[in-house]
Write a protein that binds this DNA or RNA. Structure first.
Lengths: 178, 178
DNA sequence: TATTGTTATACTCTATAACTATA
DNA sequence: TATAGTTATAGAGTATAACAATA
């Protein structure tokens, strides 16, 4: 807190220099980057903005599409399992499952062995809708990824795959970092 | 729509092969990846889970931290400008600004030339809080990024910087893609 | 009349707990 | 009693429109 005015002016100059560098497209130290959250959040918002109209055209919600995607990998025996697989809550996906079932995109049959559980399966029509939607979503994603060089794109997707499967438990302690 | 059963079985086999390949850590075609949204969403959720406790310890909300970050780059003349800069709405940040001002982290002074506008500035204390919080957030981000190789990490951050500044208007038409 | 900030309202999501039906 | 699914309720977050002050 001592020498405040001086330090503040220094920092201001550094920030200005960083902004200038960014504006002119110069290389800059990675520590001058924005926070990851401040970059990931707008990317997700852009993805949602681009993909929601596509899903709407296929008459499925974001969660509905997520369910169809999960079930296209194979049936699931309980709704709670499915919910956890897509990062949702068992109470939250009920409305989604109701809609998907009413639209004939999934089937929900009580397990004969344990009639509390509901065997969840995608229908042929559900598979068709999911894959048609996915094709358009992939095309939309190409529009985003075209901002990257081919090498950047490959590495970006690979890195994203690694990061997306991490849980808080997977993170190392700060003291174990090099 | 013709030959549905046959194609469906083929696709199922391909999906199984992809899951097997992924499980064994084999290289796989990029087209076999999950949707970007399905990967970006969990990453953002993980970032929020890791960073919210840090911000709470410094007694600022996520939007409060976002405001402090924006103002640490320089003062802003109107609240609407600030709101747009952080991707929010002018009505949405009012409560946040009230809190930050009450905590002495920002100042909100009517512009003498146009007394409708409020000149927004970060205070010394606000700068201190913001930078202390950022230091911890950066440390937390290191824990995430340590899942990547140094080369992956550099390219990932660079790609994220590019993608995070895109707006829907920046996206090329599908027909203009190579 | 247009703009800045504010308030009010409704709407969507989400989280939690209570309930039913099966086991 | 424990579990799977469902429903009910309240809370947070957001969007929209209406409003007061100033230009």
């Amino acid at each position: 807190m001592t020498d405040r005015a001086g330090r503040r002016r220094d920092s201001g100059d550094r920030d200005s220099a960083r902004r200038e560098g960014a504006r002119r497209g110069n290389a800059h130290r990675e520590s001058d980057r924005r926070d990851l959250g401040a970059m990931v959040h707008p990317v997700l918002r852009l993805l949602i903005a681009v993909e929601l109209p596509i899903l709407a055209a296929h008459e499925v919600s974001m969660w509905g599409y997520s369910v169809l995607t999960a079930l296209d990998d194979g049936p699931v025996r309980t709704q709670a399992t499915l919910a956890e697989a897509i990062g949702a809550d068992k109470t939250r996906i009920i409305g989604t499952l109701d809609e998907l079932q009413a639209a004939g995109l999934i089937s929900r049959t009580p397990d004969p062995n344990d009639r509390r559980a509901r065997l969840l399966e995608i229908t042929d029509e559900g598979r068709r809708v999911r894959r048609a939607a996915r094709a358009e979503i992939r095309a939309a994603e190409e529009r985003l990824l075209s901002a990257l060089t081919p090498a950047e794109r490959t590495t970006f997707v690979r890195a994203l795959e690694k990061l997306s499967v991490l849980t808080p438990d997977d993170l190392p302690d700060v003291r174990d970092l090099p």
